[in-house]
Amino acid sequence: MTRVCLVGSDDVNLRYELLSRETARDALATYDLREPFENSVGLETVSLGAAVALLNDLNWYLVRFADEAMVHEPSVSETEWLSRDLAAAVRDDAVGPDEAARFCKVYGLEAADAHADADGESDDSANDGATGAEHDGGPGSGVGADPAGPKRLVEPMYVTRTGNDIPDYDLRDVEETVVERVTESEFGA
């Protein structure tokens, strides 16, 4: 199964924005929606082509409400996500799975309570209305075992793979990271 993860912008509740609009709600109606990361919507599709087609169907909403659209295709990598553009390039055979590993964004993962305000209260405004969502982050997410809920993706670090290894994430002190492979043009943007 190919997985899709849509990560909402900081100032919106992505799940609410998608499900409150008829066209997006209809496009997502057949999927079991999850929340792999804070303020995200995750789902499984039958193939890479179906994942890219769904993202194309949701494009109007993604441009307005999402910061990131990632695809996890197990035939390309068991642990790393693909950007939307890279997933489309792999689907179209414009980029081979082996060529898709050079440029990456590495996100830190923080517990939801790591961004509590000065009074010690957690800022859960990004999750208003998203209760009842299952948490399942899939590859590299560390989500699912945490009873506090999904972790949030923080501050991406752009890296170039020069072998089998990726440089360590050093922008924040985090225990886990999520790797997203991106196209050369996304890397340089």
Rank of each mutant, 00 (worst) to 15 (best):
R3T: 11
V4F: 01
S9G: 08
D10R: 06
N13F: 07
L14W: 14
L14Y: 12
L18K: 03
E22F: 03
A29Q: 10
T30A: 12
D32M: 07
L33R: 06
L33S: 07
F37D: 01
E38A: 13
V41A: 07
L54G: 02
L54N: 12
L55S: 03
Y61F: 14
L62H: 05
R64K: 12
A66P: 04
D67H: 08
P74A: 10
V76F: 12
E78M: 10
L82M: 14
D85R: 13
D85N: 08
A94W: 07
V95F: 04
V95E: 10
V95W: 06
G96D: 15
A101H: 10
K105I: 02
K105Y: 10
Y107Q: 03
E110A: 03
A111L: 03
A112P: 01
A112Q: 02
A114Y: 02
A114L: 01
D117V: 06
D117T: 08
E121I: 15
D124S: 09
D128A: 04
G129Y: 11
G132H: 14
G138T: 08
S141Q: 07
G142K: 04
V143D: 13
A145T: 02
A145M: 10
E155T: 12
E155D: 10
P156M: 08
P167T: 07
P167K: 07
D168C: 03
Y169K: 01
D170G: 11
D170W: 14
R172C: 06
D173W: 02
V174K: 14
V174G: 13
E175N: 13
E176G: 02
V179Q: 08
E180I: 06
E180A: 12
V182F: 09
S185I: 04
